[in-house]
Computed example of a mutant assay.
Amino acid sequence: MIRVLVADDEPLIRAGIRMILTSADDIEVVAEAADGREAVELALRHRLDVALLDIQMPVLDGLSALAELGRTAPGVRALILTTFGERDNVLRALRHGGAGFLLKDSAPGELIAAVRAAAAGDAYLSPAATRHVADSLAAGPAASRSEEARRRVAVLSEREREVLALLGEGLSNADAGRRIHMSEATVKTYVSRILAKLGCENRVRAALLARDAGLGV
């Protein structure tokens, strides 16, 4: 059973998230918090697998709570939930060890998939967030970026480039697997191998590289 903390300052939002998550037979919401400080305290009190943190909360915001959890409860995988998809927020979440970034208008199934992915030790980024960040991170002359990206992806096998192209579209492991008729676990293995070969620290950087290289475009 995946044990989850839900932190959001709006009671109706918390109730809605609880209803969605508890509809899955492998997820249990064991605690709720109305601010980031309370979320950190509850995370230390309960045996948690995943903390779902709203980005805008009083006392301590979600990103600050994420950073504190990284110091005090490193075993807890934290997902950031927000209505905002700004680049800086996503990058801060990744830098502080966040397990994912999910927009509040995501489908219920995506929320459940994100919690499961985080609990399994995988990183999850909303496809919308991935596409947004990949677009906004691009900097420098397009020609030089493309040339460098094509050089880097040349080390990948054809199948690895196919998987990388799907990361560039912002697809989750499960969605990518369905697209190319591959199990989610196999896609996860490919993603880990791709990140290692490319020297990318996360899926967003790999997605950006895929776009610069013209994969799947």
Rank of each mutant, 00 (worst) to 15 (best):
R3D: 06
V4N: 05
A7T: 05
D8M: 06
D9C: 14
R14I: 10
R14K: 13
G16W: 12
M19A: 14
I20T: 10
A24V: 14
E28R: 15
A31Q: 04
E32V: 06
A33P: 01
A34V: 14
G36W: 03
G36K: 04
R47W: 08
L48G: 00
D49Y: 04
V50H: 00
V50L: 03
A51M: 11
D54N: 10
D54L: 10
D54T: 13
I55R: 13
I55D: 06
M57S: 10
L66N: 02
A73F: 06
V76L: 06
V76C: 07
L81H: 10
T83W: 12
R87S: 14
R87E: 15
R87H: 13
V90W: 02
V90G: 00
L91P: 03
R92V: 13
H96P: 03
G97H: 09
G97W: 02
G98E: 02
L103W: 07
L103T: 09
K104N: 07
S106F: 03
G109L: 03
I112T: 05
I112H: 00
A114H: 02
R116H: 09
A119P: 00
A119Q: 00
A120M: 08
G121H: 06
G121E: 07
Y124S: 06
L125N: 04
S126F: 02
S126N: 11
A128W: 10
T130S: 09
T130P: 01
R131L: 15
R131V: 15
R131D: 11
D135L: 13
A139M: 14
R145H: 04
S146W: 02
S146M: 10
S146C: 13
E147Q: 12
R151F: 03
R152V: 10
V153E: 00
V153R: 00
V155Q: 08
E158R: 14
R159F: 11
A165F: 07
L166M: 11
L167R: 03
E169T: 09
S172Q: 13
S172D: 07
S172Y: 08
A176L: 07
A176E: 01
G177R: 02
H181L: 15
M182E: 13
T186W: 07
T189D: 14
Y190Q: 11
V191E: 05
R193F: 14
I194D: 01
L195S: 09
A196N: 10
A196V: 08
K197Y: 07
K197W: 05
L198K: 08
L198W: 09
C200I: 07
E201Y: 12
N202V: 06
V204N: 02
R205D: 04
A210C: 10
A210I: 06
R211K: 15
D212G: 09
